[in-house]
Computed example of a mutant assay.
Amino acid sequence: MAEDDSRASVVPVLVLRKITQILRSFSVDQPELTLQQIIRTTGLPASTCQRLVRNLVVEGFLDREDDHYRIGLDFVQWAAPGTFGLDLVRLTRPALQALRDRTGETACLYVRHGPFRTVVSLAESRHPVIRLFVVGMVMPLHAGSAGKVLLAWDPTARQEAVRHGLGRFTDHTVVDIDELTDQLAAIRRAGFSASFEERDAGAASISAPVFGLNGELVAALGIGAPLQRVSPADVERLAPIVMELARDASRRIGFRADAPFAVRSATEL
């Protein structure tokens, strides 16, 4: 009887191991994969991999668009620490849409997981030419305004990013830790971050922090656009709007400016 119980407990563990292999095949460099790519990366039998991937889509662990798969929104929300899951997305949605409407550009909400940031919600620009963002998109922290916001208000994020390595994506990517530290201090003083061509050529973004109930950093809210529509000359006009809507998002999830964590962070960071 004991042997039967032991054998029965092994089967679910083996299935979980295969699921873990599938999920780990996605990375910041390859956020979207075809089924054949997943099969090659995991080394799983094609029929087994196809069945598990199909089930992961049904359960929300993976999202599918045409022949490509990516990490699902449900999984991102469960995995990201410091968030309120679906409540975070639902409660901040009005601020996200208002940011899109007032700036005309795609607005995104990002949360951090380890040394990466992930888009958990977006309101897409109505311009015919846009920067492409999708829910579940994974990006580095040190390249781009939203990632730098998460770094600027979260010392743990800085430690994880440095430990993972500051990879170069363009000629404008900051890979020197001292230069990055100076930038983060300036971002905290300004209350927002603006970046140009740090992760992709021809891309621009402006982001600001979203704080939770106790004043802890929860997310970054920002806009992303082609450089021809958002240049350094537009920051003075757009940054106040981004900060205003990030404050609105914070209020919607219960942030209080006198929260102990908020006061401590302002003086210690």
Rank of each mutant, 00 (worst) to 15 (best):
G167C: 07
R168P: 11
F169C: 06
F169I: 01
T170V: 03
D171H: 08
H172K: 07
T173R: 01
T173W: 03
T173F: 06
V174L: 11
V175D: 13
D176G: 01
D176F: 03
I177Q: 14
D178L: 09
E179I: 07
E179C: 00
T181P: 01
T181D: 13
Q183D: 15
Q183G: 00
Q183T: 05
L184I: 01
I187D: 03
I187H: 12
I187Y: 06
R188G: 08
F192P: 02
F192D: 03
F192Y: 15
S193Q: 02
A194V: 03
F196E: 08
F196N: 09
E197A: 07
E198S: 03
R199L: 15
R199K: 13
D200Q: 14
G202T: 07
A203K: 04
A203E: 14
A203N: 05
A203L: 12
A203M: 11
A204V: 01
A204Y: 00
S205N: 15
I206R: 12
I206P: 10
I206L: 13
I206V: 14
S207F: 08
S207C: 08
A208H: 04
A208R: 13
P209L: 10
P209N: 11
P209G: 06
P209T: 08
V210A: 11
G212D: 15
L213S: 11
L213T: 15
L213H: 13
